[in-house]
């Protein structure tokens, strides 16, 4: 099952390697190798061999997917090692960790090395002017500055001087003249780039369509259930739509939830990380509450926080509540009194 999840992440990873080239491949290889070595180092002395369950591989893989392609090799290595040694094995290995290992490792790296964790590489064919940044980071930088008086995230980006690729302008120009202009609508520049993930960012999280492809497969095979991701993304989208514009002074209902759903690691987190059976509630009701909580936390951390895009930190925080949610929502066995039957 774990291997299948890894397989579903392959298209998005392949896209990242295609966009960012060899550095992305190195980061992925280093983070996976570090996770496997850490797993071996922490289990072999006790006479156990646990690589076959695939969890160490998946942890390293997800850590790598969230890294910027330009990160120096020691950062993914340390994040993976921390994830396996401290977050997973210190609590007794797979099934006993209360926090998602990959997210723990990423939060550790974000806290420890904010500089190396933002060494982005420009995507292949992307326009490079000034500092290379993912759209989300650029948006936050623009909103922190004065005079971000546009109504949508993409408009704020354009007015702040953020450039999108030539491909984007060509495709949008064609679509706008042939499809939308008769209807009196015009898609803002950047729509195409953000939609397909032709932007700078974490290796495996830029391409939302390819992540969704893997997510559909997981849903179809019944490996994850819809409750958690739908509640997570839904809560986040509603909060972002209603309150997201308040920070830039645009008032209510001006957040641009579409942009936020397609940027950062939100989709990866909602479909591949948060439903981790070890660290999420088991009941459907619990999953729904968990998803709502994660969406709320992600909204606050992304719009008012400073730790990356808020997904990793909110999943780590949410994990603390998962056992409680299980207790509250588990069915009582008839004839007993306790909730934790």
């Amino acid at each position: 099952m774990t291997w299948l999840v890894g397989l579903c992440l392959l298209p998005a990873a392949g896209w990242g390697v295609f966009l960012f080239g060899t550095p992305a491949l190195i980061v992925l290889a280093v983070s996976i190798a570090a996770a496997i070595l850490a797993e071996l180092a922490s289990t072999l002395p006790f006479g156990r061999f646990t690589l076959r369950d695939g969890s160490a591989f998946l942890t390293g893989f997800i850590v790598g997917l969230l890294m910027p392609a330009g990160a120096p090799a020691c950062v993914p290595a340390a994040a993976s090692a921390f994830a396996i040694l401290v977050v997973k094995q210190s609590f007794g290995g797979l099934g006993r960790n209360w926090m998602n290992p990959a997210m723990g490792g990423v939060v550790f790296a974000l806290l420890s090395w904010p500089g190396p964790m933002s060494q982005w590489i420009a995507p292949k064919g992307g326009a490079v002017q000034g500092a290379v940044m993912p759209p989300l980071e650029a948006l936050r930088a623009a909103m922190a500055g004065p005079g971000a008086k546009e109504t949508t995230p993409l408009a704020i980006l354009s007015s702040s001087g953020f450039t999108f690729s030539d491909l984007d302008s060509q495709v949008l120009g064609w679509i706008n003249t042939h499809v939308f202009s008769p209807m009196g609508i015009s898609l803002p520049p950047g729509t195409f780039d953000v939609l397909i993930g032709h932007v700078a960012g974490g290796i495996g999280i830029v391409s939302v369509p390819l992540l969704m492809l893997g997510a559909w497969f997981l849903l179809f095979r019944g490996i994850i259930r819809w409750h958690l991701p739908v509640m997570y993304l839904g809560t986040f989208a509603i909060l972002a739509a209603v309150f997201g514009g308040l920070g830039s002074g645009n008032g209510w209902f001006a957040g641009g939830p579409g942009f936020h759903l397609f940027s950062g690691s939100l989709v990866l987190g909602a479909f591949f990380v948060a439903p981790d059976p070890v660290t999420s509630p088991m009941t459907n009701k619990g999953k729904c509450i968990f998803g709502i909580g994660l969406g709320t936390l992600t909204f606050f951390l992304r719009f008012f926080g400073s730790l990356g895009d808020g997904v990793a930190a909110s999943i780590v925080l949410g994990n603390c509540a998962a056992p409680l949610l299980d207790r509250w929502t588990s069915r009582r066995v008839t004839g007993t009194q306790g909730g934790a039957a």
Binding site: A78, F108, L111, S112
Partner: peptide, 10 residues
């Protein structure tokens, strides 16, 4: 490049 996270309360 220290492991800054250890300097925090966590």
């Amino acid at each position: 490049q220290p492991l800054r996270a250890l300097g925090f309360a966590g």
